[in-house]
Write a protein that binds this DNA or RNA. Sequence first.
DNA 1: TTCCGACAGTGGGGTCGCAAT
DNA 2: ATTGCGACCCCACTATCGGAA
Length: 508
Amino acid sequence: MLLIDLARTSAAVAADSARLAKVRHLAELLGRVGPDEAEIAIAYLSGELPQRQLGIGWAGLRDLPDPRLAATATLHQVDGLLSRIRAQSGPGSQNARKALVTELFAALTGPEQTFLSRLIRGELRQGALDGVMIEAVAKASGAPTAEVRRALTLRGWLPAVGAAALGGGVEALRAFRLEVGRPVAPMLAQSAPSVTAALEKLGGPAALEWKLDGVRIQVHRSGDEVSVFTRTLDDITAQVPEVAEAVRALPSRDLVLDGEVIALRPDGRPEPFQVTSGRVASRADVAGARRTSPLSVFFFDALRVDGADLLDLPGEERHAALARTLPPELVTPRLVTGDAASGEAFFAEVVRGGHEGVVVKALQSPYAAGRRGAGWIKVKPRHTLDLVVLAAEWGSGRREGRLSNLHLGARDPAGGGFVMLGKTFKGLTDELLAWQTERFLALAEGPADDWTVVVRPELVVEIAFDGVQRSSRYPGGMALRFARVIRYRPDKTADQADTVETVRALMP
DNA sequence: TTCCGACAGTGGGGTCGCAAT
DNA sequence: ATTGCGACCCCACTATCGGAA
């Protein structure tokens, strides 16, 4: 099969807004693809690369060669070159990668270049990723969607699952099982504004667990072999030796556990997220890093214990197995209650302890791997500030032509100006985007660069955020975490906005 | 007919490793 | 030594479609 076939299908998928039409386009192509090309086609059309990462990004795709006229590149040819790009390492590798990118793109037509560069940047923008591709695989293979989903849960890589379905139908899908050593897509949580709201949503008693501000891990143990995976299924075993040691010390030798790793201070309060993040990312001198910032591990779910797969069991049964298998200090603290008042009290206590919040879990729900299932609901406290818009950046994609990303500043009574604390594009409706674009252009003091418009600091906007963190990027040495717009405050002028002192008081 | 679950898109700050300068 | 880039850690929110109610 040729790359142009995929590029054409992708364009057709993008052109139809209806999901069912997207599925039809994708399934039609899957019906034509050969068995040895199915993985590549499914990967590309769901926005992924079989190589996962190439070492090429936005900058590596600047200055592409002119397209050619005849489309001749096959999927195998493209995939082979991408593998060669990925394989480059050591001094000179960056230049070698660029040379290979040039060679690859010089062999492509315009539409192919557009498709492939979007794919490599991770911005396919065709309105279809895994979710739609699952439906397409089901349609093309004749297997029920639920079977495809379940196989994906256990295998964690849709192209492999899709290829199996196209080749062997339902039978092939049923052959996928939970395998110790191969990570499963972790279950995710929805969110709610309060414990009361979360309990209401679940409609009965639930388990409230500490939400630790660390890094999600999935740990597999088979005998003395222990592997630790992140949420995106990357192997971080070497960076977090504390985890393997803790799990190896358990009596059970066959385990798949779900939990969180976090750096705690000697007094038990959490370090800022940056500390945990740094520990998980750093590969050099793990022993030294461990002495400075030791990691603690807490588990909250068990997917397999001693030969038994637990994924389909109710949450409370899985937790019972967890509690039987682990010592209490390795289990995430929790409270089971249906009472909103005691739930709120528990939440307040957790937050006082410096933690992120709680996760409210239905007692009955199975482990819905890879989905934002309704069974888990996270609750976090929310801060708000009234800040001043200092500038705005032009948006992209569906926000093209709209001023989108806001630069936010707090009032600085000492300096008489404003101190930038970060940016946000979240919480804006289409209506608000249109309004603010017009308003900002009226307040414009001129462009700072091609994509940023500096405005007179007059508009006050109410911003919600999760906390304040240390920053080396911004002049005040602080930045807001997860800032989002609540509403504009036309009733306030800039000299009534919150000050940097107010923000500084929120620093941990 | 209306409601709501699931998905995709639109980007945010911080950290590390590594190649290029 | 510094800088720029890529990859990944954390992530919130809105619009839309289509099945559920």
